[in-house]
């Protein structure tokens, strides 16, 4: 299973990188979502995916009766999913505001903070 996951993770990263290299901010956002999924699956697979029983202890036992899936990456990913969603929402709103403000979705034309024809700073004392 890990080999198949490695392939899927590689694909997710490749597509995410390709989308992030776009100049259109919406495509970059789509890429970010894919990148988030790729990273989550990467962590998951790094914790091994051989056992498929949920990491839940039966009512009448102190430890799981059989080998369960690794709970640690699950705990890490669970919070990561929620955080990446809230960041995605933030970036989406930011992109939306930038579009309203600058009238473009092309990152090459967003030169407000770093203008293209920036002059030398004053050379006096």
């Amino acid at each position: 299973m890990e080999a198949a996951l490695a392939f899927v993770v590689g694909m997710l990263f490749a597509v995410a990188i390709y989308l992030l290299l776009s100049e259109h901010i919406i495509r970059m956002l789509l890429g970010l979502v894919l990148l988030g999924n790729g990273v989550n699956l990467l962590i998951f697979a790094a914790g091994r995916a051989s056992a498929v029983a949920p990491p839940i202890i039966p009512v009448d036992a102190d430890v799981p009766s059989a080998v369960t899936a690794n709970p640690l990456p699950q705990a890490l990913i669970l919070t990561a999913i929620v955080i990446s969603f809230s960041f995605f929402a933030f970036l989406l709103v930011l992109a939306y505001r930038v579009y309203q403000d600058l009238g473009t979705d092309d990152t090459d034309r967003m030169r407000l903070a770093e203008p293209e024809d920036d002059d030398l700073p004053p050379l006096g004392y």
Binding site: V82, F85, S86, A89, V93, Y96
Partner: peptide, 16 residues
């Protein structure tokens, strides 16, 4: 926290 933050985001976008 999750209810408050996420619904705040969603409602704000819906208002927009």
């Amino acid at each position: 926290v999750v209810v408050g933050s996420i619904s705040a985001i969603a409602l704000a976008l819906e208002e927009e």
